[in-house]
Design a protein around this nucleic acid. Sequence first.
DNA 1: ATGGTCGAGGATCGA
Length: 262
Amino acid sequence: MPFTLATWNINSVRLRAGLVQKLLCDEAPDVLCLQECKSPVENIPFELFAEMGYGYWAARGQKGYNGVAILSRLPLQDAGHIDWCGKGDARHVAATLENGVTIHNCYVPAGGDVADRTVNEKFGHKLDTLTEMRDHFRANLPEKSILVGDLNIAPREDDVWSHKQLLKVVSHTPIEVEHLGNAQEAGGWVDVTRADIPEGLLYSWWSYRARDWDAADKGRRLDHIWASGDIAAAGHGSRVLRAARGWEKPSDHAPVFATFDL
DNA sequence: ATGGTCGAGGATCGA
């Protein structure tokens, strides 16, 4: 049975519960992975989503920061979470569907403003998270698995509006791209979005600070869908719902979709 | 070169 999955950094699931409902109503993915819920799990309005048929969920939360949730209209089982860097952050949750596919929903640290870990510990935290991801997936080779989320790195030249102008900007620096590539390679993860859409500029995030985000179009592809090598060929239909960036009181991220025939 | 905008939570911090 094919299923469609979406990933979206919602930037407060309570403030934007209505936008989550709109996405579920308009696009009807089978599974929706959210990041930056910014809420303890007990304060997330799961009942609003259950009313729409999304009665299954797995989540990790904390007050004010981070937070990841998987909403599903297919039954799922919580498959635990990983506390990258031992900070107690809610940056990962996993769940397994009845078809045996495990979904990892990840929120990698943004990394602060300066791309130098000797003066910016947030940047070090970001790199260390990616190193732990590398080591984890090297030791636990994923099978029948999908990894999604806001990885806060745009790895390719055509994942940003200007490769040259962003080379020293956190999210597109060579050392981040290298760390992300190491984590991807260690797990044998395939970038499903780029396997589907190998050519051309593709973004999933546009800053709030632009006067006119749509006209300026200075985007970055920070949100990703990866699949383990054994199921990657089942992935297709990848797209970014750019229109969601223009909704009322939007998140600064747009949802990314893929369908898997499994 | 700089500043620009959000959200949480009630001053800043994180993005």
